[in-house]
Design a protein around this nucleic acid. Structure first.
Lengths: 333, 333
DNA sequence: CTGTTAGCGCGTTCAG
DNA sequence: CTGAACGCGCTAACAG
């Protein structure tokens, strides 16, 4: 049952009356081949419906012509988060003009590490971009044979690891300073998971700035980057009576805003709020949300270019690229 | 440069003091291996950080341990549509307990066919599920060596092709009958792209039922399954003065509802509206939307099971599975 | 239970 | 410019 349906290069070569080597050269253009032969081979391949066996080709040439986008999050999070959506779109956009296929690997937290590791191997993909990584779960990614570009500072460094990031410390500071300028005095933060470097960095910048100005930075609630995560964190903060809350994702901010509103807190009046991502969500709430940018399009493009640089031009090692965030001011703060 | 970082099975075998074949058996469990040897080999593999080369393994065993989810839509559509999101979640959920990795292939309309074809090859994936296919663009998918399960009736049949579907004709009829029961008399339909079988089927059921009841089925506007598509179609229909509009996707319905409302038409009062998908969107509009179910979770599960049946148990051919849609009644109709 | 021997399908040296 | 031979890393038939 296995053999049927498999048209091999040998079949094409035989049909065109040449050797396999010649057929290979004619199809890939990797070597000299007379125009006449080339045409014959191409015609034969077309006629027989030949599709090169990717595995064999990868094995022989050590090139897979594919890159993986690895997102170690449950797929409900991947599909709901504007930042991750932006990354998916951006990465596939960036690789579209190249001949690399983008493969989306949704790694679930409870997946055995081997399941994804075996796919991040040479000759399956030539490289990978890793987004939204947590402290644990991707440790064993070091040592995979392929170059890796992280979006967001990785927890450990390694020869094969490169990264792009937003200056998240500066982002946290931006939010804090805005609140200070608006005269706030009782602060709180709704952060993402504690095991992600961007969260740590934003929180650090936030705290530093407030402490530096002589204020208590207040509580920091850690929760998943979801609507529910924001809402639940907000519920826990209602009693605290903050007049300025920094929420580290617009999606969480939507949930938080709703929870605060239901608790009788008027956001924009009783309480200032700043989100992160500057996504559609920030523009659709009421009041609209002031937000720190987290430019997925820019990040994904840079990450893709960085990976392509290594893949196609052997440019390596590469220094990290850091993007400066900006504050987009709207009604909420 | 290629060799470095590649730990091969030979290295593991040598380190464990056995032959390569034995090492292979010990690691994969594909053959007999004494407990002692198995432990030694596993330890050696762990120690050396061995990761099997997927391409080599696939080439030798003719099994890739991966399935593809193919969605031939621009990624902005994929990420915004509740049905497609449901499919992605459902499929990866269904394959999670198995040892197949799900690979999401986002095929862009302007991608050269070869780019995806070479990936839909044996020894890259063992099979594929194709969702949201249009009339053209996937023709050449016939002849790929792997079993295919379509979600939604395919345009052509082929030995390797199986499918699951919703009884879309019945779905269209359901909407029409509801409108008739509510006493509507001037009908219109906002459909998806004309080159998709579910759209054709729903429209057919819709028309049949209305014509059968002695009414003019009215205009059918074709547009992409997007918010904008719905809004633009609605704008074109405002002058027609329909009192009952069937919109073939909740996402489109949100756009249409907004457009009608802005044009001064009170949906739920002046005009009845029914959507398709019974998604979150249907529950979040005002008035809330009556909707025909299009159960992504159920469809994806059945598609996955069908593919697994062929893959793991050689169950083939398989007869299509058709799910009956239901009408979920809310304020809008 | 283990080692030996063949390939899987292809790219890529080498001679001619 | 073309063909013959080799090897990529692994699994799967055989022998022992």
């Amino acid at each position: 049952m296995a053999r049927q349906g498999q048209v091999t290069l040998d079949d094409v070569a035989a049909s065109a009356g040449v050797s396999r080597a010649t057929a290979s050269r004619a199809l890939t253009g990797s070597g000299p081949a007379s125009a006449a032969v080339q045409a014959r081979v191409r015609a034969a391949a077309e006629h027989l419906g030949f599709t090169p066996n990717q595995a064999a080709r990868a094995l022989a040439s050590n090139k897979a012509h594919a890159v993986a986008l690895v997102i170690p999050e449950p797929n409900t999070i991947i599909l709901g988060d504007p930042f991750l959506q932006g990354m998916i779109i951006g990465v596939s956009e960036a690789f579209h003009p190249t001949d690399y296929q983008v493969i989306l690997l949704m790694v679930r937290p409870d997946d055995p590490p081997g399941k994804v590791l075996r796919l991040l191997h040479r000759s399956f993909v030539d490289g990978a971009i890793v987004v939204s990584h947590h402290r644990t779960g991707v440790e064993r990614l070091s040592g995979v044979g392929v170059p890796l570009v992280f979006v967001g500072r990785p927890w450990w460094m390694h020869a094969e690891v490169m990264y792009v990031d937003v200056a998240n410390r500066a982002g946290g500071a931006l939010a804090a300073r805005r609140f200070l300028d608006r005269g706030a005095s009782r602060f709180a933060c709704i952060a993402g998971p504690e095991d992600m470097t961007p969260v740590r960095d934003r929180t650090a910048g936030w705290r530093e700035t407030l402490v530096g100005a002589g204020y208590d930075p207040g509580p920091v609630e850690h929760a998943p980057f979801t609507h529910a995560g924001g809402a639940e964190s907000a519920a826990r903060l209602v009693g605290y009576g903050a007049d300025a809350v920094f929420v580290q994702s617009d999606l969480m901010a939507v949930g938080a805003l709703r929870a605060f509103t239901e608790a009788g807190v008027r956001v924009g009046t009783d309480m200032l709020m700043i989100g992160v991502d500057d996504s559609e969500f920030a523009r659709s709430t009421s009041p609209r949300l002031t937000s720190v940018t987290n430019p997925a399009a820019d990040l994904s493009l840079r990450a893709a270019r960085m990976l392509l640089g290594v893949l196609d031009f052997g440019r390596c090692p590469v220094t990290p690229e850091i993007i400066q965030p900006e504050l987009v001011v709207r009604e909420s703060a």
